[in-house]
């Protein structure tokens, strides 16, 4: 163990500890804001875990987030709380494995559309189930969880996700991902089982997203499919992770925190024109970056932060 490693670990623990103490000082609004922010940080980390190295642009985020939220709502009266999260995670895992097995051979825009449609499909299936089988559309969630409790759980999840992506980046799996991102032919000829690696990462990332949904659900008190499966969640997560630098450990955090605050401010001040402004921001970002978003992510960050390894691609 090098001194630098110890320093990093201590810094990480100090930051988490400081964040854990925050609810003792923060106002209720502050806690609400932090819950939202931590949720997006965790989603962005989860997204980057899979999409960063593999370059699969996934819009399935809200599919898993919504599954988590809905599982929480459906089982809130029959299952004890910690068990609830476990069940949600398992359902997310199951769906991710099935979806992954069927679709990870798709590439490019097919995958984008597929994942986007997945959220829509699950939303419609849940709606159909609720209307036809249970006979109601919305559900109430009454769980004895305080906002502080939600905050701490999300913090723990975010810390775990961060630690996991750190551990992966130093492991054999991390190297496998780098090689896959760079050249799949070399990867497979070196003995890497590409399909398994991708599936594993997709599932892991999906479980994180599912848990974010399950933990946040009690905040809403009332859920219905259009709330739980709101596609904006997928778009925001994508843009946060992408602009922060999906291939860098700190990237998702650097993207999620400022952008979350920006979106929060926008939706508070321009509730009716929110999506117009959001769209204009997307377009502006693309046009302001001279060589495109991908180039900015791969080179721009490397220039600004010399410690980072430039992930240049020669074609």
């Amino acid at each position: 163990m090098t001194p630098r490693f110890l320093l990093e670990i201590s810094a990480f623990i100090a930051v988490i500890a400081a964040l854990a103490l925050l609810p003792l000082f923060a106002s209720p609004y502050g806690i609400t804001l932090m819950i939202g922010m931590l949720g997006y940080v965790a989603l962005a980390i989860g997204w980057a875990l899979f999409s960063g190295p593999t370059r699969y642009v996934s819009l399935a985020t809200v599919a898993f987030f919504g599954i988590g939220a809905y599982t929480c709502a459906v089982f809130s009266e029959v299952l004890a709380y910690p068990l609830l999260l476990l069940v949600a995670g398992l359902i997310g895992l199951g769906v991710a494995l099935v979806v992954g097995l069927a679709t990870l051979r798709l590439a490019g825009v097919y995958f984008v559309i597929f994942t986007f449609g997945l959220a829509e499909l699950i939303r419609q299936l849940v709606t159909w189930y609720e209307v036809n089988i249970t006979g109601t559309l919305g559900r109430y969630i009454f769980l004895p969880v305080t906002p502080e409790g939600i905050y701490w759980q999300l913090l723990a999840l975010t810390a775990a996700a961060f630690a996991m992506s750190w551990a992966i980046s130093r492991s054999r799996l991390g190297l496998a991902l780098k090689v896959i991102g760079e050249d799949e032919v070399v990867a497979s000829h070196s003995g890497i089982d590409i399909a398994r690696v991708k599936l594993g990462l997709f599932a892991l990332s999906a479980v994180i997203m599912t848990l974010v949904g399950a933990i946040q659900a009690p905040r809403w008190t009332y859920v219905e499919p259009s709330i739980a499966f709101n596609p904006t969640v997928s778009f925001l997560t994508l843009i946060m992770a992408l602009l922060g630098g999906a291939n860098r450990l700190m990237g998702p955090i650097l993207g999620a925190v400022p952008l979350f605050l920006l979106f929060e401010w926008l939706s508070a001040n321009f509730p009716n024109h929110y999506s117009i402004i959001l769209g204009l921001i997307f377009i502006t970002i693309v046009f302001v970056l001279p060589n495109g978003v991908l180039d900015f992510i791969e080179k721009g960050w490397a220039r600004r932060l010399p410690v980072a390894k430039p992930a240049e691609v020669h074609k």
Binding site: L242, G279, F287
Partner: peptide, 13 residues
């Protein structure tokens, strides 16, 4: 990536 983000933006607008 650029065209996905731009047309997303357009979609939102």
């Amino acid at each position: 990536i650029d065209s996905i983000l731009t047309t997303f933006g357009l979609l939102f607008v």
